[in-house]
C-alpha cells in the first residue's frame, strides 16, 4: 500500500493513556460505559488515580468497583492556547476538575453545556466519548435541575 507524500495532514490523534496491567480495567470499563475505581482490600479506601500500591496503607491488594458516576464540578478552566496538535484544533475547550460522590477527584471535560454556562458547584454525571477506535474517555454532563 502506498501513501502520497502530498496528502494533507491527518486529524491529529487524541492523547492516549499508556495502558498497563494496572490501569487497563479502568479504560476497559470506559469502553463498557462503566466508571471503575480500585478499592484497597486491606484498608477499604477507594482510590484514584489508578495505582499499584495503596497510598494510605501501602497494601498491594485491591479490587475494582463501579462508581456512581455522580459528582460536582469542583473547578474548571477554559484553555485558549493549543499546547498539543489534537487540543489546538479544539480551543477554546474546557477542562473540568470533578469531585465524585465517593470523594475521589479526577480531571475530565464537560460536554453538552457551553463553556460560558459552567459554574463551580454544578452537579454532574459521567458520560462517555469515543475519541478513537480504541479510546473511550470518561467525560461529564451537567445535571439539569429537576422541574418541580
Amino acid at each position: 500500500m502506498s501513501t502520497s507524500t502530498n496528502a494533507p495532514p491527518a486529524d491529529p490523534q487524541p492523547i492516549k493513556p499508556a495502558i498497563s496491567e494496572i490501569n487497563k480495567p479502568f479504560w476497559d470499563g470506559c469502553r463498557a460505559h462503566k466508571l471503575m475505581a480500585q478499592r484497597c482490600t486491606h484498608c477499604q479506601e477507594p482510590r484514584y488515580p489508578v495505582a499499584a500500591v495503596c497510598p494510605n496503607c501501602l497494601s498491594t491488594g485491591y479490587e475494582w468497583r463501579e462508581l456512581s458516576g455522580r459528582g460536582e464540578l469542583f473547578s474548571y478552566i477554559i484553555v485558549h492556547r493549543g499546547y498539543h496538535p489534537y487540543w489546538a484544533q479544539r480551543v477554546p475547550y474546557n477542562v473540568a476538575f470533578i469531585e465524585l460522590e465517593e470523594g475521589l477527584r479526577m480531571f475530565s471535560n464537560i460536554v453538552g453545556t457551553p463553556n460560558e454556562e459552567l459554574r463551580v458547584g454544578q452537579k454532574v454525571k459521567v458520560a462517555y466519548e469515543e475519541r478513537s477506535a480504541d479510546l473511550v474517555v470518561p467525560v461529564f454532563e451537567v445535571v439539569k435541575e429537576a422541574l418541580d
Partner: peptide, 27 residues
C-alpha cells in the same frame, strides 16, 4: 498524571494548574 496523563483531557501546561485554583477562589 503519569500513565493516565491529564493531557487526555487537555490539562496541559503550567498555566492550567494555576488557573484551576483561581477559578475556585473566584467561586
Amino acid at each position: 498524571g503519569g500513565e493516565d496523563t491529564w493531557a487526555v483531557w487537555g490539562m496541559l501546561g503550567n498555566a492550567a494548574n494555576s488557573a484551576l485554583g483561581m477559578r475556585r477562589h473566584m467561586a
